[in-house]
Amino acid sequence: MHNEHSDTHFQSRIDNGEHIEPKDYMPEGYRKHLIRQMSQHAHSEVIGMQPEGNWITRAPSLRSKQILLAKIQDEGGHGLYLYSAVETLGVSRAELIEQLQTGKAKYSSIFNYPALNWADIGAIGWLVDGAAIVNQVSLQRTSYGPYSRAMVRICKEESFHQRQGYEIMTTMMRGTKDQQAMAQDAMNRWWWPALMMFGPHDSDSPRSGDAVKWKIKRETNDELRQKFIDKTIPQAELIGLTIPDKNFKLDEKTGHYTLSPINWEEFHRVVAGHGPCNKQRLDHHIKYHQEGAWVREAADAYKIKTAKKELVTA
């Protein structure tokens, strides 16, 4: 089949709302975009376990510890669903991990900020998972079948994460003056980075065009960010948290909130590797990956040994 013809046929399938499956024809650009976006998504789930893992041993109650453990286990599971889905595009798990560890593949910059105290665990669940859900709900309708199915599964599990975070923030806002100050401080530190999770403005997002045309992304960065802002500000106000932005206001005509400009310099600095925890996150991942190598080797050796045994007894 002539390539140009295949690309036209592919686009007409997309325009008809069909899903693309692993063995279907797809343009090289589509495959590349998916590998980059999905692996970045998978890496984010896995690296995102670190700031929260830091608080398992210091959770303030047995209840909150159990919940945090379950949440982190979910994040690990989400990473695995996504890795499986990327692998259907013909890239191996080992390659994906290498790309992460050498810095060739990125993960969400939000995880390069530290979780300094228990209020941060609330802010992460509420704001970071909240932003992730807005993005993921939209991605349930993405055009690549395995990605879409992974998103449906993840969305089902993720909504408890956002509620868990909001519950922590609510509890602290009902507490002492000090607890309220802690919650507000966490809000102040996480608000802007959470808004940056949606990526650059549409006008500065070079790859957005193709991703929308191919229906990998169903809504643009700015549309998703606005959704998140409009849903989150009323939640903040309800429990007495202040939005760390002097200029934010509700536009009565559109029903949308408007904010001060986002500091993109900070965003680009953190993406480029100069956030507070970039090095720590990668070093940790590499260390535990290497220390776990013997487990994978032993499992492989056991497989070979038992296969030989079966051959002898057969």
Partner: peptide, 12 residues
């Protein structure tokens, strides 16, 4: 079909 896993043998 739910997805896939990596494992060395059926038990894992």
């Amino acid at each position: 079909h739910s997805g896939s896993v990596h494992a060395s043998d059926v038990k894992m």
